[in-house]
């Protein structure tokens, strides 16, 4: 093969060997350089390659270029076995994207730091933030303002209710483990690290039930205010752990049951077909 000669073209045999990977490294690189600059040889290569293989390769390249990248949390979930279609649905939720998760993590970290610095006497910041992080995450995962595709979601076979529940689980799974770990750093009884789960798991169905009437944003504001009232009100005369003690956990359980009942009743009575949330 002669290189650097104007008008020279590689013959079919050489190009076939190149395509089969039979050339040595130097000759192969040389042919590749030439093909990248010579339209005639590229056309010959096109004829020598199986059209099916060419199409497959091109589709693979387009797949990488056109397919949007999944957020880190969703990629992580994919590695843990989350199905690819579910990952696509989760990736479009604002509260499962990096910026929101980092924000939630930082807020919880500061709240934990404050509780730690006070030696366990000021638990309010943590007890305030820990249950509200999933509540706000769920509220940010759906609704007309957060998801401009509401009109399509409402008429898709997957269903709005199913999508909201999927995203709710996605938010809980992404926020709860980190919060439990941060809770372990707080001075005080060990059960405190998990005790906030009671109000968190109760406030989420309360949010979903309320959002059916007033939308997720207003519902999130109402739930946040109520929970803030409980936590801040208890700091005046009650023990720092009062909002998450056993008696209150029973109230939260009752609230969760009532909220689920409201959702179920609305599912039967709603004027929009197939919509429970």
């Amino acid at each position: 093969m002669t290189t650097g000669t104007q008008g020279w073209h590689a013959d079919s045999a050489l190009l076939s060997s190149y395509l089969a990977g039979d050339l040595d490294a130097v000759t192969g690189a040389s042919v590749e350089q030439h093909v990248s600059r010579c339209a005639t040889c590229r056309a010959t290569v096109g004829r020598l390659v199986e059209p099916q293989l060419l199409e497959q390769t091109w589709t693979g390249i387009r797949d990488v270029v056109e397919r949007p990248a999944l957020p880190f949390a969703v990629r992580l979930a994919r590695r843990c076995g989350l199905s690819e279609p579910t990952a696509v649905l989760l990736a479009s939720a604002a509260s499962l994207r990096g910026a929101w998760l980092v924000g939630a993590f930082l807020s919880l970290s500061f709240a934990t730091l404050a509780a730690y610095a006070s030696g366990g006497t000021a638990l309010a910041p943590f007890l305030l933030a820990a249950p509200l992080a999933p509540v706000l995450g769920v509220a940010a995962a759906y609704g007309p303002r957060q998801d401009p595709l509401e009109a399509l979601i409402a008429t898709a076979p997957y269903g709005r209710t199913r999508l909201i529940l999927l995203r709710t689980i996605g938010v809980l799974v992404s926020v709860l483990p980190v919060t439990v770990l941060l809770g372990l750093a707080i001075p005080g009884p060990p059960w405190l690290a998990a005790a906030w789960l009671g109000p968190a798991l109760a406030l989420v169905p309360v949010l979903l039930a309320l959002a059916g009437f007033v939308g997720p944003r207003t519902a999130a504001a109402v739930v946040s205010l109520l929970w803030s009232g409980v936590v801040l009100g208890s700091t005046r005369a009650l023990a720092p752990t009062w909002p998450v003690e056993a008696a209150q956990q029973g109230v939260y359980l009752g609230l969760a049951v009532v909220a689920c009942a409201v959702i179920a009743i609305r599912a039967g009575a709603d004027r929009q077909p197939g919509v429970a949330l």
């Binding site: 056109e66 397919r67 949007p68 199905s83 690819e84 279609p85 696509v88 649905l89 479009s92 007309p144 998801d147 401009p148 595709l149 509401e150 009109a151 399509l152 979601i153 008429t155 898709a156 076979p157 997957y158 999508l163």
Partner: peptide
Amino acid sequence: FLPQELGYPSDMTAFGFIEYVAVLKEWNDR
């Protein structure tokens, strides 16, 4: 269904948008 007023997520590509709807329409095989 093409609604009268359809919001378009500005951060999505055309492919990403259609693919998202396709998943909602149960096109599960990638």
